Computed example of a mutant assay.
Amino acid sequence: MIHELLQVDFWEMILRTTLTFFVLLTLARILGNKQLSQLTFFDYITGITIGSIAADIAGRSESAFLNGLTSLIWWSCLAILIAYIGLTSPSARVLFDGQPIILIKEGKIRKQSLKHARLNLDDLSMMLRKQGVFSMQDVNYAILEPDGQVSILKKEEHQPVTKKDLAIPTPKSVFLPSEIISDGKIVKKNLQELHVTEAWVQAQLKKHGIQSVEEVFYAEIQKDGSLFVSKD
């Protein structure tokens, strides 16, 4: 009797976990592709809550499956609704996501902004160091973004020199560097994006002494139209 009960629970858990997995995968695709570093606090909390609900559905047999699934889908719908409202209403976007806070303006630290952001000087120094700035004297503007990251504009004398500053001629990029051969097979989707034909690829390979695409493990088109080729 106990053996049969355990067997029923096992297959029930497998079914619940499998269904929850695919529902969660679908919802994740619908909710969007923000990276972890781009998430606002609301996005972060939403992700944790959805994950918690999904874990509860998959791992607890005493929880009603349909009730949990309804809760999971409804929470996701609310997140989508909030995102849509944020897209259509700037004031709502500020309410839901917050807005940037200027921590350093024209080289001067703004104490009130630090208090508003609940940061101290050590926090600010740490955030600057993560951006490769080790002296506040180098900073013209520092802005705390809604995702918790700090954007920095250095003072003019501390900004890196560009080719334009040195009047160095810069050739125009012809292509976006992209893979066109992977594991001996042509990546046709990328060829279409780049408006390049397979015949052109074959001609370029012959310049490298390669007669067949199958000989190539990886090939990438460079911005000047040349190929980087790695054989098997």
Rank of each mutant, 00 (worst) to 15 (best):
R93M: 02
S125H: 10
I45W: 06
Q222M: 15
D183M: 06
L191H: 02
F175N: 02
L15H: 03
D147P: 01
R29C: 10
L19P: 02
F42Y: 13
S89Q: 07
I53M: 03
K207N: 15
Q112L: 14
L25Q: 05
I109Q: 01
E220M: 15
A167Y: 08
W11F: 15
W11P: 03
I168M: 12
K207W: 10
S226V: 01
Q192S: 10
L119Q: 04
H195A: 08
I210Y: 02
W200S: 03
P169K: 12
K185T: 05
L153G: 08
S182N: 13
Q7N: 15
F21S: 08
L194S: 01
R60I: 12
S71D: 07
D183H: 09
M127N: 08
F22S: 03
K207V: 10
P169C: 09
S151A: 10
C77W: 07
K111D: 15
K130S: 13
H195K: 10
V187C: 04
I48C: 01
F134Q: 08
P169N: 12
G51V: 05
E193G: 03
L128N: 00
D97E: 07
H116M: 09
L24Q: 05
R93T: 01
G107P: 02
V174L: 14
R29W: 11
L27C: 05
E215W: 01
Y218G: 00
T18R: 07
M1P: 10
T18C: 10
I152Q: 02
H3W: 08
P146E: 05
F228M: 13
N120E: 07
I14V: 15
I152S: 05
T197F: 03
T40N: 11
V150M: 06
K111A: 14
R93K: 13
L191T: 01
T46D: 10
L227M: 11
V139G: 02
V201L: 14
L144C: 03
I101C: 03
K108W: 08
E145W: 07
F96V: 07
L6Q: 12
Q222C: 14
T17K: 04
E4N: 15
I14H: 10
E193P: 00
V23M: 14
F22V: 08
T162K: 11
T49Y: 06
K188Y: 15
G132F: 10
A58T: 04
M127R: 11
M126A: 06
L6D: 13
L87M: 00
I14M: 11
Q204F: 07
V8P: 00
L114T: 10
A199C: 06
Q38R: 15
G225Y: 04
I50L: 15
W200G: 01
F42K: 04
K189V: 14
M1S: 14
K223E: 14
